[in-house]
Simulated assay, not measured.
Amino acid sequence: MAAHFKMSDLGALSYYLDIEVRQGKEHISLGQRTYAEKLLERSGIAECKPCTTPMVERLKLSKHSTTAKVDATRYRSIVGGLRYLMHTRPDIAFVVGYVSRFMEDPRKDHWSVVKRLLRYIKGTLD
Rank of each mutant, 00 (worst) to 15 (best):
L30G: 06
L85Q: 09
T66F: 00
Q23P: 00
H4D: 12
V79L: 06
W111R: 02
T88G: 05
H64Q: 13
R119K: 14
Y16K: 10
L117W: 05
F102Q: 07
Q23T: 12
A72I: 03
R74L: 14
H4P: 01
W111H: 00
G31Q: 05
I92V: 14
K63D: 11
I92E: 05
L40E: 00
D71K: 08
K63N: 12
D91P: 07
L17Y: 06
I28C: 07
D105T: 12
Q23E: 05
V56E: 15
K108D: 15
R116Y: 02
D105S: 14
G81S: 07
Y120F: 15
H64K: 13
Q32M: 04
R83G: 03
T34D: 11
L40Q: 00
V96Q: 01
D9A: 13
K115D: 01
W111Q: 05
I28F: 08
A68H: 11
T88W: 04
K115I: 12
K63V: 13
K69T: 13
R76F: 04
R89I: 08
E20Y: 07
D91S: 13
T88Q: 05
E20C: 02
K115P: 00
Y120P: 01
Q32A: 02
K49S: 08
K122E: 04
K108V: 02
R116N: 06
R33Y: 02
D126W: 09
S8P: 03
G81T: 08
G31F: 01
R22Q: 14
V113W: 00
G80C: 04
I28Y: 09
S29W: 03
A68P: 08
K38F: 01
L117Y: 06
T124E: 06
K60S: 01
L82K: 00
V99C: 10
T66R: 15
L39D: 01
K6G: 10
S62Y: 10
S65M: 07
K122F: 03
H87G: 00
A46G: 08
R33G: 07
Y75M: 04
L117F: 07
T67N: 02
Q32L: 02
G80M: 04
T88A: 07
D9W: 11
S14M: 03
G31M: 01
L85H: 10
H27K: 12
K63L: 14
K49H: 08
H4N: 12
A46T: 04
W111D: 08
M7Q: 12
I78D: 03
E37T: 13
A68I: 07
K49W: 00
G11Y: 08
Q32I: 04
V113A: 15
A72H: 03
A12F: 11
Y16C: 15
C51N: 14
G24I: 06
R107C: 06
K49E: 06
P106G: 04
K63P: 01
D109T: 10
V114M: 06
R76G: 00
D91Q: 13
G31A: 10
R116A: 00
D109K: 09
A3W: 11
E104V: 09
L13C: 14
A36L: 00
H4T: 14
Q32W: 03
L59E: 05
G123L: 05
V95C: 08
K25E: 15
